[in-house]
Design a protein around this nucleic acid. Structure first.
Lengths: 132, 132
DNA sequence: CTTGACCCTGTAGCGACTACAGGGTGCAGA
DNA sequence: TCTGCACCCTGTAGTCGCTACAGGGTCAAG
């Protein structure tokens, strides 16, 4: 495989060009070699690393957690307890958000279900936002 | 009721002092009168308005939407269709987020459920982040 | 040899706060 | 009366994860 330009990498991974440069600045991706014209020249290893980052982002991991995951992934012999802990923390966070949003959904549905008025004066939604 | 200081208002509404000042800068709260010593002096109406903002925030409305809701709430005779539309948009947004997070949760649970390895080399979690 | 797509760096903006720094105010106790 | 302390003020910068320029350079096709 020949070297990939940043645009090629963006198309292959679905990660925007600007975001790839951002990840590089943030230390998630190694600085790739440059061409004569100072263009970034990526290889397959870069693509794999970026795909790892993208999948982690899609699962909601923050960039700090991803840095940690990448470090761990690079040390094959290390025990994977830390990986487990990171995933567990992330799951807990996701569950917390789901709980919050589920409560919001119930309240919004209830408001909308009771909305029968024509004017703001007796609007159930406004009334509830006011606190009944 | 005597005038409330910003700290009193913060304690009564559960909104931090810094956030109250921020809402004022953003035009969600009117600029209150000041004491001789240049302290903000709030009345019951301010407290009601801030409570409205807080409840809306707790339901996930953005500050722009809240500004619109406040405007609508101030005009009692206007039809409440716009209020309805804002609430409906917010519900749709909340449902979209729940769907995303539910997918994340399933994937994270699945990863964690399959984690039986001792080392990173055969860690199921790392493997899946790598793309199997 | 020009056009246009791509690439480069550096900086500023988003939303909704949050956290200072560096000062002023006000009140209770010694 | 003085002093200490909690509170208040403004203004600015930082957070997170991008995203959007501005102002330039590179490169291949026509």
């Amino acid at each position: 495989m020949p070297a990939l330009s940043i645009g090629d990498l963006a198309r292959r991974t679905g990660v925007p060009v600007e975001t790839i440069r951002y990840y590089e600045r943030m230390g998630l991706l190694p600085k790739p070699p440059r061409t004569e014209g100072n263009y970034r020249a990526y290889e397959a290893a870069h693509e794999r690393r970026l795909a790892f980052v993208k999948r982690s982002r899609d699962l909601g991991f923050g960039l700090d957690a991803i840095r940690a995951l990448l470090d761990l992934a690079d040390g094959a012999d290390r025990p994977c307890g830390e990986v487990d802990a990171l995933a567990r923390d992330q799951l807990a966070e996701v569950e917390r958000k789901i709980a919050d949003l589920t409560a919001m959904r119930a309240e919004l549905q209830d408001m909308l279900g009771h909305c029968r008025a024509d004017t703001v004066a007796d609007c159930e939604i406004i009334g509830r936002l006011r606190g009944r």
